[in-house]
Computed example of a mutant assay.
Amino acid sequence: MIAVLQFGGSNCDRDAVRALSQLGLTAKRVWHEDELPDETDGILLPGGFSYGDYLRAGAMAARSPAMSAVREQAENGVPVLGICNGAQIGCETGLTPGAFTTNESARFQCERVHLRIENDQTPWTSAFEQGDVISLPIAHGEGRFEITDDRLAELKDENRILFRYCDADGAVTDSANPNGSTDNVAGVSGKRDTTAVLMPHPERATLPELHGTDGQGVLNGFKVASTPS
């Protein structure tokens, strides 16, 4: 069962449950003050505006009761995926390095973007090949990924950058970077590749009638990560 954590201000939790269910996965919303169910074999941190983004996006939710259990589960290899506000929470919790800050434009941006697959050897990217270009929507005001040069070099050395903003042909350019993220980074993995965060919304790209199904490949990572090798 995939536990979709619900915080005060979450607004993508129902979308996430619907998208996971569509893929044949059992998903359930879990209030952040409650204990994770015993049958939890995956965790999704959804998008939204937890705690109204007060202080800074994700900072307060990162200190909610459930996150200690999430960290423990992640360390044990249980798949954990943070999306948008969930990505901000993941970084604030230390599940992944870096931070997400105010867009370079200082505006909320809601649009479709292209992403290039940088590492196809993780559960979240195994449906694709390295260099593939996929399309997902974004909807954020604080999506700019920031990280020090040393930590960025570490991520590159360890092949932990999963997605980078690019144009339709796969070129990673400044003009294809919607929010000013360092090195066009859109998603990274944690110390284990079963933990990852990304700013775009795969749960909003799973229905053919809604302009694409690329998000299915990302969310199918829960199946891949739970399958014995």
Rank of each mutant, 00 (worst) to 15 (best):
Q6W: 15
F7Y: 15
F7D: 14
G8C: 13
L23Q: 11
T26W: 11
A27V: 13
K28W: 12
K28V: 14
H32T: 15
E33K: 13
L36R: 11
E39C: 12
E39V: 10
T40P: 08
T40W: 06
I43R: 12
G47V: 12
G48I: 11
F49N: 08
Y51W: 15
A57Q: 13
G58A: 13
A61D: 10
P65F: 07
M67V: 14
V70A: 06
V70R: 04
E72H: 05
Q73V: 03
A74E: 06
N76K: 14
N76V: 03
P79E: 03
L81M: 05
G82T: 08
N85R: 11
G86F: 07
Q88N: 10
I89Q: 07
I89Y: 09
I89V: 15
T93H: 03
T93A: 12
L95Q: 04
A99D: 10
A99N: 09
F100Y: 13
F100V: 09
T101M: 09
T101H: 11
T102K: 13
N103K: 14
A106C: 12
Q109R: 09
C110V: 11
E111L: 09
R112V: 01
I117D: 00
N119L: 00
D120H: 01
Q121Y: 00
T122V: 00
P123A: 00
G131P: 06
G131C: 07
D132I: 01
V133N: 00
V133W: 00
L136N: 05
I138D: 02
G141T: 10
T148Q: 06
D150V: 07
A153R: 08
L155Q: 02
I161V: 08
L162E: 01
L162N: 02
F163Y: 07
D167R: 00
A168H: 04
P178L: 04
D183Q: 13
G187R: 00
V188N: 00
S189Q: 07
K191H: 07
R192V: 00
R192I: 01
T194K: 04
V197M: 01
L198S: 01
L198Q: 06
M199F: 10
H201E: 07
H201R: 05
A205D: 07
T206V: 15
T206I: 12
P208T: 14
E209H: 12
L210V: 11
G212Q: 09
Q216P: 07
Q216C: 09
Q216L: 12
G217N: 07
G221A: 03
F222K: 08
K223R: 10
K223D: 04
V224D: 04
S226E: 03
S226A: 13
T227I: 03
